[in-house]
Design a protein around this nucleic acid. Sequence first.
RNA 1: UCCCUUGUAGCUCAGUCGGCAGAGCAACGGACUGUUAAUCCGUGUGUCGGUGGUUCGAGCCCACCCGGGGGAGCCA
Length: 471
Amino acid sequence: MTISNEWIPIAQIRTASIATKWLGKAIEVRGWVRTRRDSKGGFSFLEINDGSSFGNLQIVAPNALANYESDVLNLSVGSSVTIKGVLKESPGEGQSFEMEASAIQVTGQADPQTYPLQKKRHTFEKLREWAHLRPRTNTFGAVTRVRNRLSYSTHQFFQDEGFFYIHTPIITASDCEGAGQMFRVTTLPLDKLPIKEGKVDSSQDFFGKPAFLTVSGQLEGEVYACAMGKIYTFGPTFRAENSNTTRHLSEFWMIEPEAAFYELPDNMALAERYLKRMIRDCLQDCVEDMEFFDKMIQPGVVATLQLVLDKPFEHLSYTKAVEVLLASGQKFEYPVHWGADLQSEHERFLTETYIKGPVILYDYPAAIKSFYMRINDDQKTVRAMDVLVPGVGEIIGGSQREERLDVLLERMTASGLKEEDYWWYLDLRRFGSVPHAGFGLGLERMVQYVTGMVNIRDVIPFPRTPGNAEF
RNA sequence: UCCCUUGUAGCUCAGUCGGCAGAGCAACGGACUGUUAAUCCGUGUGUCGGUGGUUCGAGCCCACCCGGGGGAGCCA
């Protein structure tokens, strides 16, 4: 049996407009068997998935095939196959097209006695133990394609808007980013650490000083924004927090745009355009996947996203938000008062009950936000913004940065930070300082929002959480 | 890190009062069928998370340890 090297993605056959051009023609597909149904009518049905689309291709395998008895009747779930045949309109219900096989080559068998995946539904918890096999399931295939689309949209959006893609460092020697607990990076022998004056002598370490995995590329992003105008980063970030929730990972992917001459309103508008671009692209290009999420994962998610596209985002100052919460009559576990950070129950009320959609909160009390956020004229609040969405909560956190050297120095002193650790960051304010702003978006939270997937561990291929780095 | 909850067949789970370890699905064998998570008949399946204790006897009670899930905090 000779099989050519030309095969077509099943996604093409799932798209009626493209499929028609293959009708009646000999084609080849390659993929994995999802299920086999034998018929005594002299043929078997195979469902083949190759990852290119949510839907499968139904193969009709006639018993006239030379290897029908020996191979086809032994094909089990998970086996890989290469199939040649002719694309036809399907007389059966459930699919428009099917392929009448003329040659089936079994590439790799999957022993049904030991192959963990069944045709039946598995819990997400169990599938996490099989992270190497779960992309072969409907849900994880769909999540993977949506995640890919969101990543692609990110680059398309920022490139279209004139932002430069900047690669900020993964390893950083400044532990001053302040966004959370950091992972230490070292080549020192852990069983025999060099000790000097009772402390680890980091001068002997690889970089001659303590080094860490980045928690944010923001400070480096500001450097490039203050030269290139508009930049964005898109890379992995690491947080060594011992958090065990459905919305936190130890390793996650973050998109951080930063733009010179941008003030907070520009920043908010950018965030809104960006989120809408991603949603629009997913609804347009991941139709089958989104239909699946809408039906099986979170009923109504498509309509909700469509609604988000049609309406401008609500804006609410922190002060107004506190008033709304106080006036709501809702009983909260944590009482609300001006100056306190909003708890997730408060955020949930605002976005899920009060606004019923995305909401941008801004102008937070200075005391609960980072030192680099620009102080407002009231001296009490800073130009910070959070974008909250129903279900997920905070999906974006950002701010206009403090560009005035004297004010920034004051804020650093008040936060107990040392000027010398930030000399290069402060230089941006010494030489040609400009107003600038940016934000960070957690890719996984965006995937959660768009798909309705409840647990963040199920929207990243190989989740890293406290106590779990398998695979 | 704190609180709650959970761990029994490949998977999902039941297991009463402490007294021989169970069901459905999957798998396998057969029947039937342009089938759609096909259907029908039949067959097999166990370190009851681990260690120790109480008891004539522990899946069940007690102690400690490990894993999973949910909530909180931290944040994206």
